[in-house]
Amino acid sequence: MTNHFKELASRLEAVSTLIRTGCIWKVTENCLEELRLPFRQAHHDFAFCNAVKGLGEAACINHDTRRIADMLRLRSEAFLQECHAGAVELLIPFRHAQRVFGVVMCGPFRSGENGQGRCPAAAAAYRELPVWRPEFRPALEKLVRVSLSGLLHELYTLRPELLSQPVRDARILAVLEFLNARYAERITIRQAAELVYLSPSRLSHLFRQTCGMDFSEYLLALRLGVARELLAGTDLAIGEIAVRCGFGDQNHFSAIFRKRTGRTASEYRRDRPEIIV
């Protein structure tokens, strides 16, 4: 991770600590994950969200990549919204030249002291969320903008190459969200195609046309990016990293890692490089 993204992750985590819930960054108006950030600053990785996703991710994917994306195209100011599971979030869009280049999402929160949520299976986790209080909104928005505006401007508006062209096809957005959330599992293009009601061959064509690379190439790049971050930033065993990143076993991971990077995983860890995903 470059120093700029390390600093962004640090500031997001600081806000998250203060509000006792998430503070994450999604890039572009389509709410895509910023793969150069640690997982926790780019995904809804909280007990409540994970409990809801465990019942089926389709609604979460639709909420993030479609509903919120549609809202961002119509709004220029921060706004509060309620997700399909009954939690609320404060969304703070960042714009440049009349275009949203990303959004900070603060939450999830309970909607009130007696809020129950809309997902009975996640009720216990919902009750553990902090309560949203409207009087906090001005201070929270100011905190986020003061903390992040300068850094985000430097990262994205002065370096537009970091922003990919917005993906407009909702089916590809759903597949990207699926891959970014489930890369540690055994994933086939058939599974992804079924998620968006396409044939594998049709999805393969659309994915390459939209993303500029094959489905399998994207998934491998995603897994290797996470692996590089874990090698440089943690002391996890290489075998555990292999499993966490979806490679199955250490031998398979080691062979692919060396082929792609020219170094073994141990050599890469020893050098502790700056990571650019």
Rank of each mutant, 00 (worst) to 15 (best):
T2Y: 11
S10H: 13
I19G: 05
I19L: 08
G22H: 04
I24E: 05
W25D: 00
K26E: 02
C31S: 07
E33T: 14
H43C: 11
H44F: 15
A47W: 13
A51S: 14
L55I: 06
A58C: 09
A58M: 07
N62D: 13
H63E: 09
R66P: 05
R66V: 15
D70V: 13
M71N: 14
L72F: 07
R75V: 11
A78C: 11
H84F: 15
R95Q: 15
A97R: 10
Q98E: 15
F101D: 14
C106Y: 09
S111W: 03
Q116Y: 03
R118F: 12
A123L: 10
E128M: 06
W132G: 04
S147H: 02
S149Y: 14
L151S: 12
L151K: 02
L151D: 03
E154Y: 13
T157K: 11
P160L: 06
S164W: 12
P166D: 12
V167W: 10
D169L: 02
A170K: 12
A170E: 15
R171A: 04
L173Q: 11
V175L: 05
A184N: 00
Q191T: 08
A193E: 04
E194K: 08
L195T: 11
V196S: 10
S199T: 14
L206E: 05
R208A: 15
D214N: 02
L219G: 05
G225Q: 04
R228E: 07
G233P: 01
D235H: 07
G239Q: 12
G239V: 02
A242K: 00
V243T: 12
G246D: 07
I256W: 02
I256N: 00
F257Y: 01
K259Q: 14
G262K: 05
T264R: 08
R270S: 01
R272V: 11
I276T: 06
